[in-house]
């Protein structure tokens, strides 16, 4: 059993830091401009019609934590699904493995980057929401932590998808069949209670739901046992899926 070295993981993350700094102008549109459209359209647009969600206050306040966490998912998936797939195809991952780095460290670096991207995203869009008065500043620090875990969680999901996809078109399924439905049916835009009775339990086990529920509980300063269970689910999901992702990546790269 080869030991696990954090320095190698840092080396994998460094690549993303450099790539993001290099393309910061484009990165700004991902982190701020695009999510700002979604946030303002929902909060201000739909918020005009749906004045209040019973038990949650104004719609803009209700929808903000959902959009924050949904964006974390898309950010993490973007790099770990598309990015990883592209770099596997270009041989860039193989190059990284010619360094004294193991596949597990490589996978950990990619997952960790998903978490970091999640934090950057929440700083940007959460900051905007705070300025708009839709999100309390006091909830930001712990929401950043939730964003980090959700980012790692979907970083791991993305790694599995990229490792399993034989082609780019197969990889698009991750977005069409998984990410988009999750974005809309994880309680981001409406409370899960409004779903038909038989769908609601399914929505609760959908992997984006716990992150959204936690962020909303933090924003509304009303945490209960359900939030503790969500935190547990989130961490367990991520920890259990990571070894699977590392194994799938190894199967893809080392033949």
């Amino acid at each position: 059993m080869t030991e696990f070295r954090l320095r190698s993981v840092a080396g994998v993350v460094e690549r993303h830091r450099v790539a993001t700094v290099r393309t910061w102008k484009v990165a700004l549109t991902w982190f701020l401009i695009e999510p700002a459209f979604v946030l303002v359209a929902m909060g201000s647009g739909v918020g005009q019609l749906v004045v209040e969600i019973p038990g949650h206050g104004p719609y803009s306040h209700f929808v903000t934590p959902g959009i924050i966490i949904g964006m974390v998912m898309f950010h993490a998936l973007f790099d770990s699904a598309w990015g990883v797939f592209n770099r596997i195809q270009q041989g860039a991952f193989e190059t990284q493995l010619t360094a004294p780095v193991t596949v597990t460290e490589l996978a950990a670096g990619e997952a960790l980057w998903g978490g970091i991207r999640g934090v950057i995203s929440t700083l940007a869009i959460g900051g905007l929401a705070i300025l708009l008065g839709w999100f309390p500043l006091s909830a930001l620090p712990v929401t950043l932590l939730v964003s980090f875990v959700v980012g790692v969680q979907f970083g791991v999901v993305g790694l599995c998808s990229a490792s399993a996809s034989p082609s780019m078109s197969a990889l698009t399924l991750v977005f069409t069949v998984m990410a988009t439905p999750l974005f809309f049916f994880s309680g981001s835009f409406f409370p899960l209670e409004v779903l038909p009775d038989w769908v609601e339990p399914l929505a609760w086990i959908a992997p984006l739901t716990p992150g959204v529920h936690l962020a909303r509980g933090l924003a509304e300063h009303s945490l209960d046992l359900s939030h503790a269970l969500c935190a547990l689910y989130l961490v367990a999901f991520t920890l259990l899926l990571f070894p699977v992702a590392a194994r799938m990546l190894r199967a893809r790269l080392v033949k």
Partner: peptide, 11 residues
């Protein structure tokens, strides 16, 4: 490696 394995997103 046979494929140059360069990272095209960085300089």
């Amino acid at each position: 490696t046979q494929q140059d394995g360069l990272d095209v997103e960085i300089s």
